[in-house]
């Protein structure tokens, strides 16, 4: 297997080196950049398979960088952000980033996210199949039926659309806006309450313990993440 290349964009040298070392130990090719302008040059020259991006760069706003990068590349982006940057985190995800980690993060967590993002990038043999599987659930996208161990579960139209969209994007953070525009349509993107209420209904129907969900996880202040 080819070694995948990961570009780390982070202005703090200590964090950059720690992340680079961990990734190299896992067998990835790593290149580094300390500024947004250097990162743009590196991204064009090395064509990385994944970008790890710190939002607080010295020369440019990370969110702007993502917008420009998304204009020509679909390479997955993993955001690193400080705790206080809740809103910029959401902006970055809305701008096209794929996932985020809050500092301080564990290396094990970082590696898991990196692997998940790279896996998603590979052409999926399953993609052409009209069924989605998670736990002991099966979503039949043709007949719009959800079954658990063969028993049908009654969902409303919106609940079905919500579940199908979540399940089609496993492991990925989906922001409130993103989910609302996908499930309800573009005009509903500010109605966060709608989304929360329907996620609550959906959890009641598919989770064994809605207060400690296994599949639909809340990313507080950001959105939801589906865990198969």
């Amino acid at each position: 297997m080819d070694m995948e290349t990961i570009l780390i964009v982070e202005d703090e040298q200590q964090i950059r080196e720690a992340v680079a070392m961990a990734l190299q130990c896992e067998g990835f090719n790593v290149c580094e950049a300390g500024t947004a302008s250097h990162a743009a040059v590196q991204a064009a020259a090395r064509q990385p398979d994944l970008l790890i991006l710190d939002l607080g760069l010295p020369d440019r706003d990370g969110v702007d960088f993502i917008r420009d990068y998304r204009a020509w590349s679909t390479t997955p982006i993993l955001i690193l952000s400080a705790r206080s940057e809740e809103s910029s985190k959401v902006d970055a995800l809305d701008a096209g980033a794929d996932d985020y980690l809050t500092k301080p993060f564990g290396i094990a967590e970082l590696l898991a996210r990196v692997r998940a993002l790279l896996r998603r990038r590979q052409p999926d043999q399953q993609a052409s199949l009209p069924t989605l599987l998670f736990g002991d659930y099966l979503i039949d996208c043709v007949n719009r039926v959800v079954t658990r161990a063969g028993v049908a579960i009654h969902l409303t139209q919106i609940e079905y659309r919500l579940l199908a969209f979540l399940a089609a994007n496993p492991g990925r953070v989906l922001t409130h806006r993103h989910l609302l525009s996908q499930v309800w349509g573009g005009q509903a993107v500010e109605n966060h309450q709608y989304l929360r209420v329907y996620v609550g209904h959906l959890r009641q129907k598919i989770e064994d313990n809605p207060a400690q969900p296994r599949h639909i996880l809340t990313e507080i202040g950001v959105g939801y993440r589906f865990q198969p």
């Binding site: 929360r196 609550g200 959890r203 809605p210 207060a211 996880l217 809340t218 507080i220």
Partner: peptide, 21 residues
Amino acid sequence: LNQAWQPVEEVIGATLQQVAT
């Protein structure tokens, strides 16, 4: 305060997720 109406399970679930890690 960035208040919004939401089911309380949502916050509890997110907290317990953190605790579990």
